[in-house]
């Protein structure tokens, strides 16, 4: 299966098979007017199967969100049909308004207008805790 290459835009590559829609949702790509291609279960020498997202416009994507979903994902920036930058990711120290705290005793459950913030407590275990109540982040992966 072939998808046309893009001239100016972003290719999010090496997404674990099955995670493209989650990333699409977290990055709010549904709001974009430009063409966005989601390729599921593409063949990969390294991964067997992988997902890819191609965004046909120049834009900033939230690297913290992508790093949180999977720091092994690569983000390729395409200009004039050429790869000009390959961004390698890491687990972000802080996640702001990406996931919500589900502890009913947390101040975020009642106070309007404050961000939901999670901090990285253990990179090896990919463990995030709510900044306010220290409850573990819901395991969504």
């Amino acid at each position: 299966m072939n998808i046309d290459s893009i001239k100016n835009g972003i290719v999010i590559d090496h997404i674990k098979a099955g995670q493209a829609m989650k990333l699409y949702s977290l990055l709010e790509l549904d709001r974009l007017e430009c063409p966005v291609a989601i390729i599921k279960n593409a063949q990969s020498k390294k991964m067997g199967k992988k997902d890819i997202i191609k965004i046909d416009t120049r834009m900033e994507v939230d690297l913290d969100i992508i790093g949180y979903v999977d720091p092994d994902i690569t983000v390729n920036v395409i200009e004039d049909g050429k790869l000009v930058e390959k961004k390698h990711l890491q687990l972000p120290e802080m996640l702001r308004d990406v996931i919500k705290c589900k502890n009913p005793r947390c101040i975020t459950s009642t106070e309007n207008g404050i961000p939901h913030v999670f901090k990285l407590c253990d990179a090896g275990k990919k463990l995030y805790r709510c900044l306010y109540c220290e409850t573990k982040a819901p395991d969504e992966n």
């Binding site: 005793r105 947390c106 101040i107 106070e111 404050i114 709510c130 109540c133 220290e134």
Partner: peptide, 27 residues
């Protein structure tokens, strides 16, 4: 003092004066 966990931390971001947590829920 506040029954919700993390309330004094939120308060400290908004306060012009130093904030002491006198108990936030079970936290």
């Amino acid at each position: 003092r506040h029954p919700k966990e993390g309330a004094p931390l939120v308060a400290s971001y908004k306060s012009e004066a130093p904030v002491i947590n006198a108990g936030d829920g079970g936290h």
